[in-house]
């Protein structure tokens, strides 16, 4: 279990992270969303024991990051926002380097390297130089490196940036699989569609503050007091639209590009049922009446103000 409590980072008087708190359970895949400069990398680096928090704590299964960093590091796989390359290193040397660092005994190193290469489908690239690999291969190699010691927490900082759609969907599969294996996975991104559909928790960060945090389903469902609805009609929607606009508890009734009506209703489920009843009683030609599915992008734009650091 990862507990982040009021984490702050101050760079020479500039508050890059201003008190972020959240909790994650094993198996959680957490999408950490924010624009560039929002403070995602800073937060992740503090959890990864690379940056000392100015105040606040983070602890993984009860171990505090600043009190026992070595114990945290044994449970941690971290992938930086851009691939930490070494010049002139071959693929197997790169893995050998990390196998030694992760305390794999000399006799077993060869076997571990071969396994990892096979797992990541890079066996044919064993003697290639790391910088000659494609971006997707490099990303796989870097992720493979994070996995050699079977970590409990994975910190992936913008893992999908610069990948082609196929590599991206492979990565998605891999991350989902890691979540199913019971690891805590934190994936940061500023590209929203990339995260859609595989995270079960979402946090939106802006200017160093976590504006909203919770299960994805909670955030993307219409929130308690406001219902987002899509109504389609038989024939012209004008009459229905005019009727809706006159309703007191309805806001923003408008036509979308498909010619359907979108509106927001202030009220609970009962109010929604009442609206449908009124529509039918008013003899309007209603064909469908549905909750509008909102995606992460909608949530993001709702929650954030677009302010930047």
């Amino acid at each position: 279990m990862l507990v982040v409590d009021n984490l702050k980072k101050d760079y020479n008087g500039f508050q890059a992270v201003q008190g972020i708190s959240f909790e994650l359970e094993p198996g959680d895949v957490f999408a950490f969303i924010g624009s560039n400069g929002a403070g995602k990398t800073t937060t992740i680096r503090m959890i990864a024991t690379l940056l000392e928090p100015s105040s606040g704590t983070a602890s993984l299964f009860g171990v505090d990051v600043t009190k026992d960093p070595m114990a945290i590091r044994r449970m941690l796989g971290y992938m930086p926002d851009f691939f930490g390359l070494y010049d002139d290193v071959k693929v197997w040397e790169y893995l050998d380097f990390f196998a030694t660092i992760y305390e794999v005994p000399p006799r077993e190193r060869r076997k571990v390297i071969d396994n990892v290469l096979e797992l990541t489908d890079l066996s044919s690239k064993r003697d290639a130089f790391v910088q000659s690999l494609s971006r997707g291969m490099q990303q796989r190699l870097c992720l493979a490196r994070c996995l050699v010691h079977d970590p409990k927490l994975l910190l992936l900082d913008e893992p999908a940036s610069g990948l082609d759609p196929r590599a991206r969907s492979e990565l998605k599969e891999l991350i989902l699989e890691l979540g199913r294996m019971g690891k805590i996975v934190i994936v940061s991104s500023h590209i929203l569609p990339e995260l859609e559909g595989f995270c079960n928790k979402v946090g939106i960060v802006e200017r160093g503050q976590l504006l909203s945090f919770g299960p994805t389903s909670d955030l993307t469902r219409s929130s308690g007091t406001t219902k987002h609805l899509v109504i389609s009609t038989l024939g012209s929607p004008e009459g229905t639209l005019a009727w809706l606009t006159s309703q007191p508890n309805l806001t923003e009734a408008r036509l979308n590009k498909d010619g359907n009506i979108e509106c927001s209703l202030e009220g609970d489920d009962a109010a929604q049922a009442q609206l449908l009843k009124s529509l039918v009683e008013a003899n309007l030609p209603i064909r469908t009446f549905a909750d509008r599915r909102i995606d992460l992008e909608d949530v993001f734009f709702q929650v954030t103000t677009g302010a930047v650091n």
Binding site: A48, T49, L50, R73, R74, G77, P80, G84, I101
Partner: peptide
Amino acid sequence: AMDLVFSAP
């Protein structure tokens, strides 16, 4: 590259 080394034990 240093980050990779120091996020390891």
